[in-house]
Amino acid sequence: MKYAIVTGGSRGIGRAIAETLNEEGYKTIILYNSSQEKAKELEEKGIITIKCDVSNRDSVKGAKKEVEKITDKIHVLVNNAGLWYLMPFERFDEDKYEKMLKVNLNGLIYVTYEFLPLLKNAGGSSIINIASNAGIGTAAEGTTFYAITKAGVIILTRRLAFELGKYGIRVNAVAPGWIETDMTIGGKSQEEIEKLRENFRNKTVLHTTGKPEDIAYIVSFLASEKARYITGQVIVADGGRIDNLTHSV
């Protein structure tokens, strides 16, 4: 039996990843900090759910103890938990920035560090970090501080690949563009959602928007033996953002 952990796994991209890995035969464990009702829905599919605030190291240590009651080996760790606020630089809000930093970057560090012994025990495992195309320079109004945290995720991915390769641990990242989730369209009217969709369609050469499953399938590949020779890489999945494809090199 192979075990997978997905942080922020109760909804959105994390939920799609958890469901996909579960369907592919992994015993999947999600760490979640909200949406308990959605977590219960996953339990009905055989997915194990553990309440955990990844930005709190003590909470992560507690989650590790719960996982150790189940297994001493983790074959796949997906650091998906994330938080974002639209915040133009001129309206800098220290509290919001600190929250994003604690979840998006510190949380990834805490989870990876605490679960590293279990990843080593697997004798060949895979860490996949969910970054963002904002972290590689894709510009969007109000995303500067979010982009800083995701750029950190990308740098950390490459450094961890360098440091953990000696244990047979591969470390890669996926950098999504705009994905339709309850975080990106929740609370908006249908008219607002359609305007958002059209806006992002017009920014891609494929003229389409992304779904959580699009990211889940990439994660599934990176977790598998088919990707055994891939580490330290960032796969951008953004429909072919026109501004990224046409800028001068």
Rank of each mutant, 00 (worst) to 15 (best):
A139N: 12
K65D: 12
T143P: 08
L206V: 14
S35W: 15
Y167H: 09
S55V: 08
W84T: 14
K188G: 10
I74L: 08
D238H: 10
E114G: 08
K150Q: 08
G187P: 07
S224Q: 08
T7S: 11
L160I: 04
K51H: 14
E37Q: 15
A122W: 05
S10I: 04
V234E: 04
G12I: 02
G9P: 02
L164W: 09
G232E: 08
G210S: 05
Q36K: 15
T149H: 01
T231G: 09
K226F: 10
A223R: 00
R197C: 09
R201F: 13
I169K: 00
I5E: 00
L21T: 02
F145D: 07
K195C: 06
K195G: 10
R158F: 11
A134L: 12
K150P: 09
T208M: 13
K195P: 08
A237V: 09
L105S: 03
R15Q: 09
G177A: 08
A227Y: 02
M100A: 01
Y110S: 02
Y85E: 15
N33T: 10
A122G: 05
N56G: 07
L222E: 06
E68R: 07
K99E: 14
N199S: 13
K102R: 15
T157W: 04
R158L: 04
Q190H: 12
Y26T: 06
T157V: 04
R201D: 09
L118H: 03
D214I: 05
E225D: 13
A216M: 05
L156E: 00
G137W: 11
V171Q: 03
T143F: 14
M183D: 14
S224E: 05
N79L: 02
K2R: 11
T112A: 14
I185F: 07
K38D: 11
N121I: 08
T204A: 11
T208H: 14
I47W: 02
A63T: 03
E41S: 14
A18D: 05
I179L: 07
L105C: 04
A18L: 03
L86D: 13
L206I: 13
I193W: 11
A122F: 04
G82E: 01
E37F: 12
H247F: 10
I50P: 00
G9N: 03
L105I: 03
I154N: 00
R15D: 02
S59L: 04
G142W: 07
Y97M: 11
L108I: 01
V111Y: 02
T209E: 10
T144D: 13
G168Y: 06
L245K: 07
R11I: 10
E68S: 10
G165E: 08
E43F: 12
R15I: 00
I17G: 03
Y167F: 13
K61D: 05
K120H: 06
V6D: 06
I169L: 03
D243S: 15
K150G: 01
I215S: 03
V60C: 00
D182T: 12
L101K: 12
G123H: 01
S132F: 07
I130N: 02
Y167R: 05
D72E: 14
K27Y: 12
E180G: 06
